[in-house]
Nucleic acid binder design. Structure first.
Lengths: 340, 340
DNA sequence: GTTTAAGTCCAAATCGTTTCGGGTCGCATG
DNA sequence: CATGCGACCCGAAACGATTTGGACTTAAAC
């Protein structure tokens, strides 16, 4: 390994000067700095992460703990999370430790172990639960962390989209088109983002002066299968919906499939909107007709999370606070006005 | 943070003695050791990973680099890899750094950067390419690593299954049942494991004294869609196959779907066998009829890889060498003897 | 000519751990 | 009484980086 000492010997200056030159301190003669930079590049010097971490108290390593019992239907999103975060964190010169808990291993315990062992600068927390015991624990330990999703209680640093607004937006568009029997395929019951979307749907209904029976909400896993099955059974009912709003594009895929299987045309016979997280392999443009709806790529969340965590680590509490990411609406070609 | 100094002050012995007591050296009086252990537990002492790493040259961190441009169809397996490895590595007291390259970032370069920065004890390499430039580079740098899959050239530590045997096994069973028109849905063209399976198929044919036209091989992504499409078009041909062997269970899922859609019964009208990697959400027992074939859970590979890497790090070259994991055959209910 | 300031530079301390090379004490051995 | 040995113990030197608190030189200011 090439160390500061090697470079300093090569250039003929002290270790101090090499360190300061590379760190950009002003008290190094420009010509000396150049020689140092040249030599350190030539030798392939990289500061030793361990040594630096030991001295500065920062290792440049952030960690994320994933529960070991993730379900198949979460895999698409989980992979998106893991790869997205890893890329963004690496891109900022930090390292990303992924700790997938063993089956039965407690997630809080895993965080604790990582903290105690030292060398972890901060955490990314995903899928916060309502109670937030994990988050409270982290906050108490004083280690920097950012949360993806809104943990509700407490003012902890997090990034999220405005899920209530997404729910309201999707429904409003459909109501504006005249739809009065809408099926909402939402996420699972306990999930906070799903509840926020329910809330948004309620707002939109209230805003339009319509009754709660205008939309029927189905909670469940966000998969193609679920979309297909829920659509199929809904379309069989006498009061079948004229429009479906799907919580994500995977659900929408199932909706399209079911509609096709039953010989219904989109948008003539059925309007569809969905929220698009920008999942790889599920591009709305790949749908025929193009799927419309709200869009807020998860990728933006990884960027925001990485930025926020880095700021938090480097500048402490003082750094930027929560970020609510924007979403856009694309009409697509999957909706039509209802005929009176 | 609780340090050795804190414990030593608490107990009233030197830092040296605390360190040695905890590390299990014999020259610490038993009674002293007990007091030390008790105190360090009471205070919650954990050795600082950075400091230890700096001193010993080992950080307890292993890394894996994943190319940034993974395709959707690889996501199931990729997530399996990432979570499986993370769990096994964590379970052995090491930490797992996941570096997902940015789009356009070179994988070899990423390895180099990680090595130069120090603090990485070893690597897990997946999906080796034939040329093996990456592996050669790692070998030259002297850092411990293990490879998942057989890189072919060179004797580098790896764990894999006997893919040729898998190919031969699957085909032999079908031949034994009398099938003479077999469709083989294999992995993508360039993949080494797929080529090994092709080889195994060739062996089996040669062994049975049959011509190459007995089996038609289709190379492609290992997805449900691919299985469905390939099956559909194959079954439409005049010389349609009486049996299909699928490279994995996802392909088999597509085969089942296509067969059902075309009104063909398994196993009466079509025999199916597949290799089962033990992918979450794709259990052969979930098929009707139960899918038969070879089985070798990927989970076993993560265990073997983690063990091998740990041994390699701790004991160097001297440690155990390559492991070829076994596979079993389960008949299932998806095959039948061919009539006439 | 003496102070002062700016511009460069460096020795040494520090982070927390491991480990080498001694110490000290008591007791048996010659 | 010296010696040797075993059982315990500890100081100090690393590991590689950052950072503090100067030192030295030169030139400007008084």
């Amino acid at each position: 390994m090439v160390t500061l000492k090697d470079v300093s010997r090569e250039v003929g200056v002290s270790i101090t000067q090499v360190s300061r030159a590379l760190a950009g301190y002003p008290d190094v003669k420009e010509e000396t700095r150049q020689r140092i930079v040249e030599a350190s590049e030539r030798l392939g010097y990289r500061p030793n992460a361990l040594a630096r971490g030991l001295k500065t108290g920062r290792s440049g390593i952030v960690a994320m703990v994933v529960p070991g019992d993730w379900a198949v239907e979460e895999s698409t999103v989980l992979l998106e999370i893991v790869t997205g975060l890893s890329t963004e964190i690496s891109g900022r010169g930090m390292r990303f430790v992924l700790h997938v808990a063993a089956p039965g291993e407690d997630v809080r315990e895993a965080h604790d172990e990582l903290i105690r062992g030292g060398g972890i600068d901060g955490f990314v927390v995903i899928q916060p639960a309502r109670g937030g015991a994990l988050i409270k624990g982290l906050a108490k330990s004083g280690i920097p962390f950012v949360v993806h999703g809104n943990p509700g209680s407490g003012a902890h640093p997090h990034v999220d989209i405005d899920n209530a607004a997404v729910g309201a937006d999707l429904l409003s568009r459909l109501l504006d088109l005249g739809h009065r029997r809408v099926l909402f395929l939402n996420g699972p019951k306990g999930a906070l983002f799903a509840e926020a979307r329910d809330e948004g749907v309620a707002w939109a209904l209230a805003g339009a002066g319509l009754g709660a029976d205008t939309v029927r909400t189905e909670h469940g896993p966000m998969t193609e299968t679920q979309g297909r099955e829920a659509t199929r059974s809904a379309l069989r009912r006498p009061d079948r919906p004229t429009a479906i709003m799907a919580g994500n594009v995977m659900l929408a895929r199932g909706v399209y499939d079911a509609a096709a299987a039953m010989g219904l045309r989109i948008p003539q016979d059925l309007s569809v909107l969905a929220h698009d997280d920008g999942l790889r392999g599920y591009e709305p443009e790949g749908f025929v007709p193009v799927l419309g709806g709200t869009r807020s790529p998860l990728a933006a969340a990884w960027v925001a999370l990485a930025d926020a965590l880095k700021a938090r680590i480097e500048h402490g509490e003082a750094s930027i606070e929560n970020r609510i990411l924007p979403h856009k609406f694309n009409a697509g070609g999957s909706t039509s006005e209802i005929q009176g």
